[in-house]
């Protein structure tokens, strides 16, 4: 079991425009109202990077910035773990289109954005960060994989880690093959030591085998959770929003799962 503290939270999804604006909805105290995800390029970015930023960069930087602001930490001060099932899916579609058409000249900007750690690169430029950064993916379990990696770094290295999870839809025809329903991102600032800013302790435990997965009570939020890999974080965010001791379970790869106990500070 790994025990860590949540100091800051960032959130951006359909009808979920920031953690502070969404806390009551996630706690079940206010009704969820669906609306398109309010994507915007972060003002942390220099102009050249801002105009090249695709949807994943907009998601990752917006939620990362909100989480750091809440934690009261400098953006350059923490290690980062970025996790996304597909990365920049618009870019994959566009490059496929270019490669399928003579003379197959790929745009340098698209090539620049095609690496899976593009969000980490943009973040480090925007934040002026020289701290370690990890980028990973694990299909529908991408969020859990990111949480396991972050928790390990926090506990083993006593690092402050910003975990940033994000995903967005593929255009057709890829959407039919890998349906991700919408754009969604979330960020958590995780620490080993409790501080005055700590919102909750979370105890994370990897478990072999299946267990009933924690679902969202609201039907639309449950559809969101199931429809976007990064939105598998929603039960954890709901537990943090409720601010009471809660036990949740999230599926991991190959029939395994993660048990998470949330205890408010």
């Amino acid at each position: 079991m790994m025990r860590l503290y949540v100091e800051g939270i960032g959130l951006l999804g359909p009808g979920l425009d920031g953690w502070s604006a969404s806390r009551a909805v996630l706690a079940g105290e206010a009704a969820y109202v669906a609306a398109p995800t309010n994507l915007r390029a972060s003002d942390m970015l220099p102009a050249a990077e801002r105009r090249r930023a695709g949807v994943p960069i907009k998601l990752a930087l917006t939620v990362g910035q909100e989480a750091f602001l809440q934690a009261g930490r400098e953006t350059k001060s923490a290690s980062t773990v970025f996790t996304s099932s597909g990365g920049d899916n618009d870019n994959v579609h566009a490059i496929n289109g270019i490669l399928a058409t003579a003379p197959r000249e790929v745009s340098p900007t698209r090539f620049h954005n095609s690496v899976h750690n593009a969000a980490a690169g943009y973040w480090c430029i925007a934040a002026g960060s020289h701290e370690p950064s990890t980028s990973l993916c694990a299909y529908d379990a991408s969020f859990v994989a990111g949480l396991l990696e972050s928790a390990t770094q926090v506990v083993v290295d006593d690092a402050v880690v910003a975990l940033v999870a994000y995903d967005h839809s593929y255009p057709e025809p890829l959407h039919s093959v890998r349906p991700i329903t919408t754009s969604f991102g979330a960020a958590l600032i995780l620490t080993k030591q409790q501080s005055a800013k700590s919102l909750a302790a979370i105890e994370v435990e990897f478990r072999s085998g299946k267990a009933p997965e924690t679902t969202m009570k609201d039907e639309a939020l449950e559809d969101l959770r199931k429809g976007v890999p990064a939105a598998r974080v929603l039960p954890l965010l709901a537990a943090l929003a409720a601010a009471k001791t809660t036990q949740i379970s999230i599926d991991y790869l190959e029939g395994n799962h993660l048990d998470i106990r949330v205890t408010p500070c």
């Binding site: 102009a47 050249a48 090249r52 745009s107 340098p108 900007t109 620049h112």
Partner: peptide
């Protein structure tokens, strides 16, 4: 304010 990627693009 263009940079090297802009020039390639």
């Amino acid at each position: 304010g263009l940079d090297s990627i802009d020039i390639l693009e």
